[in-house]
Design a protein around this nucleic acid. Sequence first.
RNA 1: GGGCGGUUAGCUCAGUUGGUAGAGCAACUCGUUUACACCGAGUGGGUCGGGGGUUCGAGUCCCUCACCGCCCACCA
Length: 1012
Amino acid sequence: MDKTFNATASEAAISTRWQETGAFRAGANKSRDETFCVMIPPPNVTGSLHMGHAFNNTLQDILVRWHRMRGFDTLWQPGQDHAGIATQMVVERKLAAEGQPGRRELGREAFLEKVWEWKKESGGTIIEQLKRLGASCDWERNAFTMSGAPGAPEGEEGNFHDAVIKVFVDLYNKGLIYRGKRLVNWDPHFETAISDLEVENLEVEGHMWHFKYPLAGGATYEYVEKDEDGNVVLRETRDYISIATTRPETMLGDGAVAVHPDDERYAPIVGKLCEIPVGPKEHRRLIPIITDEYPDPDFGSGAVKITGAHDFNDYAVAKRGNIPCYRLMDTNGAMRADGAAYSEEAAKAAAIRDGREASEAKIDAINLVPEAYRGMDRFEARKAVVADITAEGLAVMTLSDDPRLGKRPKKKDAEEEVATPVPLVEAKTIMQPFGDRSKVVIEPMLTDQWFVKADVLAEEAIAAVEDGRTKILPERDARVYFNWMRNIEPWCISRQLWWGHRIPVWYGPTKDSHEKEGVAGSVHFCAANEADVIEQAKAYYGDDVEVSFLTDGVGGQMSGMGSTSQADGTLKITSVSLSRDPDVLDTWFSSGLWPIGTLGWPEDTSEMQRFFPTSTLVTGFDIIFFWVARMMMMQLAVTGQAPFDTVYVHALVRDEKGRKMSKSIGNVIDPLNLIDKYGADAVRFTMAAMAAMGRDLKLSEKRVEGYRNFGTKLWNASRFAEMNGAVGGTAEVPTATATVNKWIIGETARLREAHDDALAQYRFNDAAVALYTHIWNVFCDWYVEFTKPLLAEGAPEREETQKVMAWALDQCLVMAHPVMPFITEQLWGDLGERAKMLVHADWPEFGAEVADPAADAEMSWVISLIEGIRSLRSEMGLSPSAKLTLALTGASEEAKARLERNRVLIERLARLEPVEFADSAPEGSVTLPIEGAEACLPLKGLVDVAAESARLKKASAKLEKEIGGLTSKLSNEKFLAKAPEDVVAEQRERLETAKDELAKLQQAAARVASLG
RNA sequence: GGGCGGUUAGCUCAGUUGGUAGAGCAACUCGUUUACACCGAGUGGGUCGGGGGUUCGAGUCCCUCACCGCCCACCA
């Protein structure tokens, strides 16, 4: 074999061999009926491998390889997510960068073609990167959440789209999906609704303006403000109500002003009307002052403007109080260019409600948005509104030293320090919603959207985790899951995008709409295909009505209807044309079907039968809500079965300072660079070693380097084995006579148990540590060193040791393979003729029964003797190369036997002349207490008496402290009475040992003293 | 405002049902013994954030305080 491991070359070659031999195919290496199926969290098709992927997929791969080697019928299902917004954004940018026509110019169909083209060119990046990491997915089954969608090109067949549509229709038919006009989070950049989860609330610096809303007709009232004790602090006559707002541009859409019912300040004017102080005076709207529990009397002025169409709180108030909601903005967040005249009907209703005659409803002629603001961006409009109100003198004024204004720079001019009246504009940090992708401020917007009754679906999803059908680990993440599920809101699933699964709903006019004038009503039909739509439409309109479909473009054309007059003078419908909903589904709606969608549902495929429900889902906590919760809800709703046996939730990879890796901070570590530099195995081992359950991991390159070194160590140990003919181990546990060989067999068995226990409980770090210490500290540091003399030409133990070492090394390769697949596969091939590749090697099953406790005890004895001598030698400053003489005094038969059996090893590793036995310590000896004997090194003249005395003193002090502690504990009657017997016995034993050692040390000290 | 997590050796972190603390890296000393300097041998270093409690016994359980971090949340 080569002198060093060439990771780059080796990884590529091995990866190819795995692929070519179908090593990762579902069921490969199957030797039992149990299945093990893992669904990859599908990366975005736009994605490239980042640390989160590397971590997530390393953990999955460890589990998958481990199970595959153990003979499970294993499937790791790979694939990608079409990622609606992200992908559409990427392609739009690309078109713009290339100077090509944009999305709208292209039109829907042509644009989608561009997206598919892009997917073909760039969509496979991450798959290749995952392969470099060593991910053993069944790549031939690679899935895509848009496969089989209309317009999908060759090579993108599949039934994922059918599954998505079928689920939509089924849930619709069950009444679990509905259309509604609700306030949703609107992203003005992408011009689409988004779900609550796609909004991130951030603190930003903002302002709160205070404006006067004049009372209608110049009415006045006595405004009285009291302090906590009821003393009047302010009494004045006002002809206005003061409103505090952070969003003046929405004033134009106010439907009311609300005050708390118990707020005495405003009691005199509740029920009266006030005027929105924006726009041309002759066109200003009057709105009622109402009461609602929502306003907090202690905040702002205690009076809140209610803008139902642009604020979630206000929307709730508006619903309660039957207050009209006026949508002020276009989909891009600009003030409505059409001014948005609201209907006469609405105006009349409002007038009547406000206690006026319908004829007084002059507002029917008025537009919501005055000419001056139309088309203005909402933030520009804010400035304009503030400026206009202030110019008109309707801003609430305060003195310039009002603490609410915050700290202001000191003015130089002494005269200006006198408090002067200024508009009250408080500087505040406010929480503002941003689109997680677009990074623009989200606008609550009143629109028609499709919703899933998530609260209904959540019931089963909660129950499935409660009753243990699905186990979420660590447990605290189950609590997070429950908490969210139990407070779930309706899920808005429609998106005003093009890239995605189009909503299978068609609209048409109501059948009586030809009898009415004006705006036609609308009905809709939900079906998986046009044939079914036609059937439904005929059932509604009549069998002889001709049903046709309008072709899209951008979408949104009016559906239409044809009719003929009948003899009796009524009209008969002869034809209708239906138009399909232009919107697509939230990406998470389709990825929520990932488990069954990839297994071929709704067909009853063999994969569905074999692998569903799946085994373990490994995912980051950041997508518990987005993805895990949705998969639970949807799979349960569709199949009645919980999709996973276990959900293992892991933490995030952060940089060495604990910060989230982000492009803007510039602290992103590219896993591919690390793989180039240190090899995939090193990166993987690092991930596993740091994967303590539930904790964030801070990644440092140093750590990766360390585990690269670990791989090198394994490589070199293998070279040693090869050079000594210790290759081609048997699968069976070999028999051994030499203690050291018996011992390594036991150690290997302990590794197997520790490793498997750890992995069974998802303690990846414990598994990694077990491998590390066994291979480095046990196998390399001790076993290899011990066996050097045994492997010498002509040594009687040579043959046995070769066999045992070959076996023990093989076991290391096998057990390290899930974590470090490449280097172990390379070594496996280099070290012998193998029937199978390591990826399919048999996982060991031996346990403690192959260990020899006597051999273990003996080797511990040998090791502590050697360590004692080495330590002493080093502390005494003795030359490392000088051979020392050693005599054992007072040796028990056991100790003598142990020494004889391991004489060569001990003498070699401790660099000793042949060890002798003696009745008493030779003159001038330094002694070392060991079990069953004292090791005496005659060091007269060689040793620094002072240093040795100090050493012994220190060792004695340590022992004395221990003895003190143990003694007081053992004389404590409560301890003796209440502690379990084995604990007491153990403490007693410890005390005896400590006393024994101390006595020996004291003798040694006396002898050393006599040396000086 | 709610909820969760963290605080253990200089640094990064383990510590599974309570039985007197571990690893890696870093530091220091020594080392050209035929697998490996991406190495070997050895050494130093911790009142387990503060305080209180339960217990024979607490890093580990309970209460409390402090600081750091994350998630969720509608105070205009």
